Computed example of a mutant assay.
Amino acid sequence: MTEASLNKTSADVPPGAQLLGREWLGFDGKIASIRFAAQSVFTNRHGTIQGGFLAAMLDSATGLGALAVLPESQTVVTKTLTTRFLKPARVGPITARAKVVAQTDRDMIVEADLIDADDVTVATATAELRILDKR
Rank of each mutant, 00 (worst) to 15 (best):
F53Y: 15
A66Q: 07
D105C: 06
T83S: 12
L6I: 10
A66N: 04
D113I: 04
P93W: 08
A112L: 13
K8Q: 13
L6D: 06
G51C: 10
R22F: 08
A96K: 01
L25D: 05
R35T: 02
L19F: 04
G51D: 05
D119G: 01
K79L: 15
T78S: 10
I31A: 08
Q39L: 15
T2F: 04
A66E: 07
A32Y: 02
Q74A: 11
T82A: 15
A37Y: 10
P93L: 12
K8I: 14
R22K: 15
V41M: 10
D113T: 07
F27H: 03
I109V: 15
R90T: 03
D59V: 01
A89T: 03
E72M: 13
S60F: 06
P15A: 10
T95Y: 09
V77T: 09
F42N: 11
P93D: 09
A98K: 02
L20M: 12
N44M: 10
D116H: 11
S73D: 13
G65W: 08
V41Y: 14
D105G: 13
Q39W: 11
K30V: 15
L81G: 04
V100E: 11
T83K: 13
I49R: 03
S33C: 05
S10C: 00
P93S: 14
A55M: 03
G51T: 04
T9Y: 09
T62L: 01
P88Y: 10
A98C: 06
G26K: 03
P71N: 08
T80Y: 06
A66I: 03
W24Y: 11
T62E: 07
A4H: 02
L54H: 04
A17Y: 11
F42V: 10
D12Y: 09
T82K: 11
N7C: 09
E72I: 13
L58Y: 02
V77Y: 00
K87R: 12
S10Q: 15
K87A: 09
M108Q: 08
Q39A: 15
K8D: 01
T48C: 04
P71K: 08
A89P: 05
R35L: 01
M108C: 00
A32N: 01
D107L: 15
V91G: 14
